[in-house]
Simulated scan of single mutants.
Amino acid sequence: MKYSRIFVAGHKGLVGSAVARVLEKSGADVVTRTRQELDLTDQAAVRRFMADVRPEAVVLAAAKVGGIHANDTYPAEFIWNNCIIQCNVIDAAYRSGVSKLVFLGSSCIYPKFAPQPMREEHLLTGALEPTNEWYAVAKIAGIKTCQAYRRQYGFDAISLMPTNLYGPGDNFDLLNSHVLPALMRRFHEAKVSGAPSVTVWGTGNARREFLHVDDCAHAIVWCMENYSGEDFLNVGTGQDLTIREVAQAVARVVGFTGELVFDVSKPDGTPRKLLDVSRLDALGWRASIVLEEGLVGTYRWFLDNICCLRTESRFDGS
Protein backbone atom coordinates (compact mmCIF):
# COMPACT_ATOMS: atom_id res chain seq x y z
CA MET A 1 0.00 0.00 0.00
CA LYS A 2 1.28 3.46 -0.89
CA TYR A 3 1.02 6.39 1.51
CA SER A 4 0.83 10.00 0.40
CA ARG A 5 1.65 11.95 3.58
CA ILE A 6 4.70 10.61 5.39
CA PHE A 7 6.59 11.99 8.38
CA VAL A 8 10.32 11.21 8.23
CA ALA A 9 11.77 11.62 11.73
CA GLY A 10 15.50 12.25 11.51
CA HIS A 11 15.52 13.64 7.97
CA LYS A 12 18.90 15.35 8.47
CA GLY A 13 20.71 12.06 9.09
CA LEU A 14 22.30 9.68 6.61
CA VAL A 15 19.31 7.33 6.41
CA GLY A 16 16.52 9.84 6.95
CA SER A 17 17.77 12.15 4.22
CA ALA A 18 17.98 9.26 1.76
CA VAL A 19 14.44 8.12 2.62
CA ALA A 20 13.16 11.67 2.13
CA ARG A 21 14.84 11.83 -1.31
CA VAL A 22 13.26 8.55 -2.42
CA LEU A 23 9.81 9.55 -1.19
CA GLU A 24 9.98 13.01 -2.77
CA LYS A 25 10.89 11.48 -6.13
CA SER A 26 7.83 9.24 -5.86
CA GLY A 27 5.60 12.28 -5.39
CA ALA A 28 4.79 11.72 -1.73
CA ASP A 29 4.10 14.61 0.62
CA VAL A 30 7.13 14.33 2.90
CA VAL A 31 6.74 16.00 6.29
CA THR A 32 9.92 16.90 8.21
CA ARG A 33 10.82 18.83 11.32
CA THR A 34 14.23 19.93 12.56
CA ARG A 35 15.24 19.33 16.16
CA GLN A 36 14.62 23.00 16.87
CA GLU A 37 11.10 22.74 15.46
CA LEU A 38 10.18 19.50 17.22
CA ASP A 39 11.96 17.97 20.20
CA LEU A 40 11.22 14.25 19.92
CA THR A 41 12.09 13.74 23.59
CA ASP A 42 9.15 16.00 24.53
CA GLN A 43 6.12 13.72 24.76
CA ALA A 44 3.53 16.48 24.78
CA ALA A 45 5.12 18.21 21.77
CA VAL A 46 5.25 14.97 19.77
CA ARG A 47 1.61 14.21 20.56
CA ARG A 48 0.54 17.71 19.49
CA PHE A 49 2.52 17.44 16.28
CA MET A 50 1.03 14.06 15.33
CA ALA A 51 -2.49 15.22 16.16
CA ASP A 52 -2.10 18.39 14.10
CA VAL A 53 -0.25 16.98 11.06
CA ARG A 54 -1.85 13.51 11.02
CA PRO A 55 0.59 11.73 8.69
CA GLU A 56 -0.53 8.49 7.09
CA ALA A 57 2.83 6.86 7.73
CA VAL A 58 5.95 7.48 9.82
CA VAL A 59 9.56 6.50 9.19
CA LEU A 60 11.40 6.60 12.52
CA ALA A 61 15.03 7.24 11.55
CA ALA A 62 15.80 9.67 14.38
CA ALA A 63 18.30 8.47 16.97
CA LYS A 64 21.25 9.51 19.09
CA VAL A 65 24.24 7.86 17.45
CA GLY A 66 27.99 7.86 17.98
CA GLY A 67 31.14 5.79 18.04
CA ILE A 68 32.75 3.69 20.75
CA HIS A 69 34.09 6.67 22.68
CA ALA A 70 30.72 8.42 22.76
CA ASN A 71 28.86 5.27 23.83
CA ASP A 72 31.37 4.66 26.61
CA THR A 73 31.38 8.28 27.81
CA TYR A 74 27.63 9.02 27.66
CA PRO A 75 25.83 5.69 28.29
CA ALA A 76 22.89 7.32 30.09
CA GLU A 77 22.31 9.76 27.23
CA PHE A 78 22.41 6.97 24.65
CA ILE A 79 19.91 4.73 26.37
CA TRP A 80 17.58 7.51 27.61
CA ASN A 81 17.44 9.61 24.43
CA ASN A 82 16.85 6.67 22.12
CA CYS A 83 14.28 4.97 24.35
CA ILE A 84 12.31 8.16 24.94
CA ILE A 85 12.34 9.18 21.25
CA GLN A 86 11.11 5.75 20.21
CA CYS A 87 8.37 5.56 22.81
CA ASN A 88 7.16 9.09 22.13
CA VAL A 89 6.97 8.68 18.35
CA ILE A 90 5.50 5.16 18.33
CA ASP A 91 2.86 5.98 20.95
CA ALA A 92 1.88 9.32 19.40
CA ALA A 93 1.67 7.75 15.94
CA TYR A 94 -0.69 5.08 17.23
CA ARG A 95 -2.83 7.59 19.15
CA SER A 96 -3.17 9.93 16.16
CA GLY A 97 -4.30 7.20 13.77
CA VAL A 98 -1.13 6.67 11.72
CA SER A 99 -1.63 3.70 9.41
CA LYS A 100 1.98 2.50 9.21
CA LEU A 101 5.20 3.06 11.15
CA VAL A 102 8.68 1.87 10.18
CA PHE A 103 11.21 1.67 13.02
CA LEU A 104 14.89 1.53 12.08
CA GLY A 105 17.48 -0.19 14.19
CA SER A 106 20.98 -1.49 13.56
CA SER A 107 22.87 -4.74 13.17
CA CYS A 108 24.55 -3.96 16.51
CA ILE A 109 21.49 -5.45 18.23
CA TYR A 110 22.94 -8.92 17.76
CA PRO A 111 25.12 -10.72 20.32
CA LYS A 112 28.85 -10.08 20.08
CA PHE A 113 29.50 -13.72 19.18
CA ALA A 114 26.39 -14.39 17.11
CA PRO A 115 26.71 -17.09 14.44
CA GLN A 116 27.57 -15.80 10.96
CA PRO A 117 25.68 -14.79 8.94
CA MET A 118 23.37 -13.35 11.59
CA ARG A 119 19.74 -14.39 11.33
CA GLU A 120 16.81 -12.62 12.94
CA GLU A 121 16.31 -15.46 15.41
CA HIS A 122 19.79 -14.86 16.85
CA LEU A 123 18.51 -11.78 18.70
CA LEU A 124 18.85 -12.07 22.50
CA THR A 125 20.76 -15.35 22.35
CA GLY A 126 23.96 -13.98 23.89
CA ALA A 127 25.77 -11.02 25.42
CA LEU A 128 26.02 -7.77 23.46
CA GLU A 129 29.20 -5.98 22.41
CA PRO A 130 30.07 -3.96 25.57
CA THR A 131 31.23 -0.87 23.63
CA ASN A 132 27.78 -0.16 22.19
CA GLU A 133 25.38 -2.05 24.47
CA TRP A 134 23.53 1.12 25.56
CA TYR A 135 22.56 1.92 21.97
CA ALA A 136 21.86 -1.74 21.21
CA VAL A 137 19.58 -2.18 24.25
CA ALA A 138 17.60 0.91 23.21
CA LYS A 139 17.16 -0.43 19.69
CA ILE A 140 16.05 -3.82 20.99
CA ALA A 141 13.54 -1.98 23.16
CA GLY A 142 12.29 -0.23 20.01
CA ILE A 143 11.69 -3.56 18.29
CA LYS A 144 9.80 -4.86 21.31
CA THR A 145 7.76 -1.65 21.57
CA CYS A 146 6.61 -2.06 17.97
CA GLN A 147 5.73 -5.70 18.63
CA ALA A 148 3.84 -4.79 21.82
CA TYR A 149 1.75 -2.09 20.11
CA ARG A 150 0.97 -4.52 17.30
CA ARG A 151 -0.14 -7.26 19.70
CA GLN A 152 -2.18 -5.07 22.05
CA TYR A 153 -3.55 -2.43 19.70
CA GLY A 154 -3.18 -3.90 16.20
CA PHE A 155 -0.88 -1.02 15.25
CA ASP A 156 0.95 -1.75 11.97
CA ALA A 157 4.48 -0.97 13.19
CA ILE A 158 7.36 -2.84 11.54
CA SER A 159 11.09 -2.93 12.37
CA LEU A 160 14.04 -3.07 10.00
CA MET A 161 17.69 -3.67 10.94
CA PRO A 162 20.15 -2.33 8.33
CA THR A 163 23.78 -3.41 8.07
CA ASN A 164 26.75 -0.98 7.80
CA LEU A 165 25.67 1.93 5.62
CA TYR A 166 27.59 4.40 3.48
CA GLY A 167 26.85 7.00 0.84
CA PRO A 168 26.09 10.71 0.33
CA GLY A 169 25.65 12.50 3.64
CA ASP A 170 27.97 10.19 5.55
CA ASN A 171 30.20 11.34 8.43
CA PHE A 172 33.78 11.80 7.24
CA ASP A 173 35.26 12.96 10.53
CA LEU A 174 38.48 11.00 11.07
CA LEU A 175 37.93 10.56 14.80
CA ASN A 176 34.23 9.58 14.77
CA SER A 177 33.41 8.12 11.37
CA HIS A 178 33.06 4.47 10.42
CA VAL A 179 35.70 2.57 8.49
CA LEU A 180 34.60 3.26 4.91
CA PRO A 181 34.25 7.08 5.03
CA ALA A 182 37.40 7.27 7.18
CA LEU A 183 39.34 5.34 4.53
CA MET A 184 37.96 7.54 1.77
CA ARG A 185 39.06 10.71 3.50
CA ARG A 186 42.51 9.32 4.35
CA PHE A 187 43.11 8.19 0.77
CA HIS A 188 41.96 11.53 -0.56
CA GLU A 189 44.25 13.48 1.76
CA ALA A 190 47.15 11.16 0.91
CA LYS A 191 46.56 11.71 -2.81
CA VAL A 192 46.42 15.49 -2.41
CA SER A 193 49.52 15.63 -0.20
CA GLY A 194 51.49 13.12 -2.26
CA ALA A 195 51.94 10.76 0.69
CA PRO A 196 53.59 7.50 -0.38
CA SER A 197 51.40 5.25 1.78
CA VAL A 198 48.29 4.99 3.92
CA THR A 199 48.22 2.83 7.04
CA VAL A 200 45.13 0.79 7.83
CA TRP A 201 44.58 -0.77 11.24
CA GLY A 202 44.68 -4.57 11.52
CA THR A 203 45.54 -7.38 9.18
CA GLY A 204 42.90 -6.45 6.61
CA ASN A 205 41.36 -9.92 6.95
CA ALA A 206 38.26 -8.96 8.98
CA ARG A 207 35.12 -9.15 6.86
CA ARG A 208 32.38 -6.52 6.72
CA GLU A 209 29.14 -5.97 4.81
CA PHE A 210 28.28 -2.56 3.32
CA LEU A 211 24.94 -1.32 1.98
CA HIS A 212 24.55 1.92 0.04
CA VAL A 213 22.18 4.25 1.85
CA ASP A 214 20.04 4.71 -1.29
CA ASP A 215 19.51 0.94 -1.43
CA CYS A 216 18.58 1.06 2.25
CA ALA A 217 16.11 3.88 1.61
CA HIS A 218 14.47 1.94 -1.21
CA ALA A 219 14.22 -1.11 1.08
CA ILE A 220 12.54 1.01 3.76
CA VAL A 221 9.97 2.41 1.36
CA TRP A 222 9.41 -1.02 -0.21
CA CYS A 223 8.81 -2.62 3.19
CA MET A 224 6.54 0.24 4.25
CA GLU A 225 4.37 -0.50 1.23
CA ASN A 226 4.63 -4.30 1.12
CA TYR A 227 5.41 -5.76 4.55
CA SER A 228 3.23 -5.99 7.66
CA GLY A 229 4.59 -8.39 10.22
CA GLU A 230 5.66 -8.62 13.85
CA ASP A 231 9.07 -10.08 13.04
CA PHE A 232 11.80 -7.57 12.29
CA LEU A 233 13.79 -7.91 9.06
CA ASN A 234 17.51 -7.68 8.33
CA VAL A 235 18.38 -5.26 5.53
CA GLY A 236 21.69 -5.75 3.74
CA THR A 237 23.41 -7.21 0.70
CA GLY A 238 24.03 -10.68 2.10
CA GLN A 239 27.64 -10.41 0.93
CA ASP A 240 30.79 -9.25 2.66
CA LEU A 241 34.36 -8.25 1.78
CA THR A 242 37.62 -8.19 3.65
CA ILE A 243 38.79 -4.80 4.92
CA ARG A 244 41.74 -5.22 2.56
CA GLU A 245 39.38 -5.55 -0.42
CA VAL A 246 37.36 -2.56 0.77
CA ALA A 247 40.50 -0.43 1.18
CA GLN A 248 41.71 -1.39 -2.27
CA ALA A 249 38.34 -0.47 -3.79
CA VAL A 250 38.30 2.92 -2.05
CA ALA A 251 41.88 3.62 -3.18
CA ARG A 252 40.92 2.87 -6.80
CA VAL A 253 37.92 5.18 -6.71
CA VAL A 254 39.85 8.01 -5.05
CA GLY A 255 42.81 7.57 -7.37
CA PHE A 256 45.40 6.92 -4.67
CA THR A 257 48.25 4.91 -6.20
CA GLY A 258 50.55 4.67 -3.18
CA GLU A 259 51.12 1.72 -0.88
CA LEU A 260 48.56 0.27 1.53
CA VAL A 261 50.24 -0.65 4.81
CA PHE A 262 48.36 -2.86 7.25
CA ASP A 263 49.38 -2.35 10.88
CA VAL A 264 49.03 -5.85 12.31
CA SER A 265 49.77 -4.57 15.81
CA LYS A 266 46.32 -2.99 15.81
CA PRO A 267 43.12 -4.99 16.43
CA ASP A 268 40.91 -6.33 13.65
CA GLY A 269 37.79 -6.18 15.77
CA THR A 270 35.09 -8.79 15.21
CA PRO A 271 36.35 -11.25 12.56
CA ARG A 272 33.08 -11.16 10.63
CA LYS A 273 29.81 -9.26 10.75
CA LEU A 274 27.32 -10.32 8.07
CA LEU A 275 23.53 -10.25 8.01
CA ASP A 276 21.45 -13.10 6.66
CA VAL A 277 18.93 -11.36 4.39
CA SER A 278 17.08 -14.45 3.18
CA ARG A 279 13.76 -13.34 4.73
CA LEU A 280 13.72 -10.00 2.92
CA ASP A 281 14.99 -11.62 -0.27
CA ALA A 282 12.15 -14.15 -0.15
CA LEU A 283 9.66 -11.29 0.19
CA GLY A 284 10.93 -9.76 -3.05
CA TRP A 285 13.51 -7.05 -2.27
CA ARG A 286 17.23 -7.18 -3.04
CA ALA A 287 20.03 -4.60 -3.02
CA SER A 288 21.19 -3.42 -6.44
CA ILE A 289 24.09 -0.96 -5.96
CA VAL A 290 27.48 -2.71 -6.12
CA LEU A 291 30.16 -1.34 -3.82
CA GLU A 292 32.47 0.30 -6.35
CA GLU A 293 29.54 2.01 -8.09
CA GLY A 294 28.34 3.32 -4.74
CA LEU A 295 31.83 4.50 -3.82
CA VAL A 296 32.05 6.61 -6.96
CA GLY A 297 28.92 8.57 -6.05
CA THR A 298 29.99 8.84 -2.43
CA TYR A 299 33.39 10.25 -3.40
CA ARG A 300 31.73 12.75 -5.71
CA TRP A 301 29.55 13.91 -2.81
CA PHE A 302 32.61 14.11 -0.56
CA LEU A 303 34.43 16.31 -3.09
CA ASP A 304 31.43 18.61 -3.44
CA ASN A 305 30.62 18.90 0.26
CA ILE A 306 33.51 17.96 2.53
CA CYS A 307 36.97 18.24 1.05
CA CYS A 308 36.79 22.02 0.76
CA LEU A 309 36.86 22.16 4.57
CA ARG A 310 40.15 22.52 6.39
CA THR A 311 41.55 19.07 7.14
CA GLU A 312 44.62 17.57 8.72
CA SER A 313 46.27 14.55 7.17
CA ARG A 314 46.21 11.61 9.54
CA PHE A 315 47.22 8.13 8.50
CA ASP A 316 47.53 6.33 11.84
CA GLY A 317 44.16 4.57 11.74
CA SER A 318 42.63 6.92 14.32
Rank of each mutant, 00 (worst) to 15 (best):
123 L>V: 13
112 K>E: 13
219 A>V: 03
267 P>E: 13
305 N>F: 05
79 I>G: 00
198 V>T: 11
100 K>G: 10
197 S>V: 02
60 L>I: 06
9 A>R: 03
54 R>K: 15
6 I>R: 01
109 I>G: 07
259 E>Y: 07
167 G>Q: 07
146 C>P: 05
310 R>H: 10
139 K>V: 01
76 A>M: 11
25 K>Y: 07
110 Y>A: 02
58 V>D: 09
78 F>I: 08
37 E>Y: 07
237 T>H: 03
217 A>P: 03
93 A>K: 00
222 W>V: 09
51 A>F: 09
24 E>F: 05
131 T>P: 00
278 S>T: 15
126 G>T: 03
169 G>K: 04
222 W>F: 09
100 K>Q: 13
234 N>F: 01
290 V>C: 08
174 L>G: 14
40 L>N: 11
201 W>M: 13
262 F>A: 05
47 R>C: 08
295 L>Y: 11
41 T>G: 06
246 V>Y: 02
277 V>D: 05
186 R>D: 12
189 E>D: 15
130 P>D: 10
282 A>K: 07
81 N>S: 13
253 V>R: 01
13 G>V: 07
316 D>A: 12
19 V>H: 05
209 E>N: 12
23 L>G: 02
217 A>S: 06
123 L>A: 12
172 F>S: 04
92 A>Y: 07
41 T>H: 01
80 W>R: 14
42 D>Q: 12
17 S>E: 06
130 P>W: 09
107 S>N: 08
73 T>E: 15
44 A>R: 14
186 R>I: 07
145 T>I: 09
226 N>C: 08
232 F>L: 02
39 D>G: 06
112 K>A: 13
68 I>M: 14
294 G>F: 03
206 A>C: 07
19 V>A: 10
301 W>L: 02
149 Y>P: 00
95 R>L: 15
14 L>F: 11
163 T>Y: 00
13 G>P: 02
221 V>C: 10
53 V>G: 06
317 G>C: 11
220 I>D: 00
221 V>A: 03
192 V>P: 02
185 R>N: 12
152 Q>I: 11
300 R>C: 04
242 T>N: 02
141 A>N: 04
274 L>P: 00
74 Y>M: 13
297 G>L: 06
63 A>V: 11
77 E>H: 11
290 V>G: 09
235 V>C: 03
71 N>W: 11
155 F>C: 04
308 C>L: 14
136 A>G: 02
122 H>V: 04
